[in-house]
Computed example of a mutant assay.
Amino acid sequence: MRWPWQKKSLQDSRCLGIELHQGRGFAVLREADVVRECYRPADTEQGLDGLAAWVGRQQLQGVPVVLSLDALDYELHLVEAPAVSDDELGDALRFRMRDLLPQGSEQKIIQGFRMPADAYRRRLEMAFAVVVDHRRIKELVRWCKHQQLQLHSIIIPELSLLHLVAEMEPETAVGVLRLDADDGMIYLYRDGGLYLSRRLNTGTRALGLASAGEGELSLETDSRVDALALDIQRSLDYFDSQLGMGIVGQLWVLVPDNADVSELLPELERSVNIPVRSLLLESAFSNSGQETLTASLAIALGNALSFEQNDAALPVAGKVA
């Protein structure tokens, strides 16, 4: 199943993964299974001009690119899966969701992928529906064309991380936690499948960690870690009791783009009662430049991996091999 903007890629040993996040662009260049270069925008930078200049300096014209949408640019819905083939799933989801979409829905692209069949103890067949404005996709296609990049596919961060987690081959179900300044996300994966994507109300600012250079914890940090842990625990409990998928064995914490949460992880581990680890990717993915692969760069890496696995289209039944 392919999105309308996906193209067959040219053979190239390089791939550029781009993550769009909060109006900025992050990039990882992979070549021969090695992270060759990374682009991280300056803290004050907005838009994609800096990324475009970096692409030019790196002489990446013609390199295949996989790009993940900014969370501001799409909606992800979980709905009952229509009884149709995978090729017809997008159109069927559009019909099913017609009353949920606002006016102007004719300008929306809807694509879907099925939740793994073992969810909900096999009693329900569910699907994730991705809703994105067609005009935004056209803007991104034009941007890639202007940079002379070979656009391979546009995906969502949930699937970027799916490829990253699958590459690491965890033996248990895992949660992946992303914390930004004012909020966060938790994703739950098992056996190459996405089961849950949920926004959290706690970010690094509320935890007293406004930036990586401000390592002192506030007096209220402990209670806010408890609040974060409670929010995470709700997701873990839902995975176990409602989805019927058992216990999440580990929680992997993406290194925030602009904060250091390492001091909080032991307390978070005590609260959720499962192993909690920073997801340090540099050694696992041969980062030749020794750039710390923070959350946005990790997702960009997942994009590059999806190209290498030749599986950037939305996976059938929400899984990758």
Rank of each mutant, 00 (worst) to 15 (best):
D43C: 00
D43R: 12
T44G: 09
T44L: 08
T44I: 09
T44M: 02
T44S: 10
T44P: 00
E45W: 08
E45Q: 09
Q46A: 08
Q46E: 08
Q46F: 13
Q46M: 10
G47Y: 09
G47P: 09
L48V: 13
L48A: 05
L48N: 07
D49W: 03
D49E: 14
D49I: 11
G50D: 00
G50Q: 00
G50E: 00
G50H: 03
A52F: 09
A52N: 02
A52C: 04
A52Q: 11
A53D: 15
A53T: 11
A53I: 09
A53N: 06
A53Y: 07
W54F: 09
W54G: 00
W54T: 04
V55E: 03
V55D: 02
V55W: 11
V55H: 01
V55P: 01
G56P: 08
G56F: 04
G56H: 14
G56M: 03
R57T: 14
R57D: 11
R57H: 10
R57P: 04
Q58S: 04
Q59V: 02
Q59E: 15
Q59G: 06
L60S: 04
L60R: 06
L60F: 08
L60W: 02
G62K: 03
G62S: 04
V63L: 04
P64E: 05
P64C: 06
P64I: 12
V65I: 05
V65N: 02
V65A: 01
V66N: 01
L67Q: 02
L67T: 07
L67H: 03
S68D: 14
S68F: 05
L69S: 06
L69R: 13
L69Q: 11
L69T: 12
D70K: 05
D70I: 13
D70E: 03
D70N: 12
D70C: 11
A71Q: 03
L72R: 08
L72V: 10
L72Q: 13
Y74L: 08
Y74W: 10
E75F: 13
E75W: 15
L76M: 12
L76P: 07
H77Y: 15
H77R: 15
L78H: 07
L78S: 08
V79G: 00
V79L: 14
V79Y: 05
E80Q: 14
E80M: 07
E80T: 15
A81D: 12
A81Y: 08
A81I: 12
A81V: 13
P82W: 10
P82G: 06
P82Q: 09
A83S: 10
A83I: 13
V84E: 07
S85P: 05
S85K: 10
D86K: 00
D86W: 13
D86A: 12
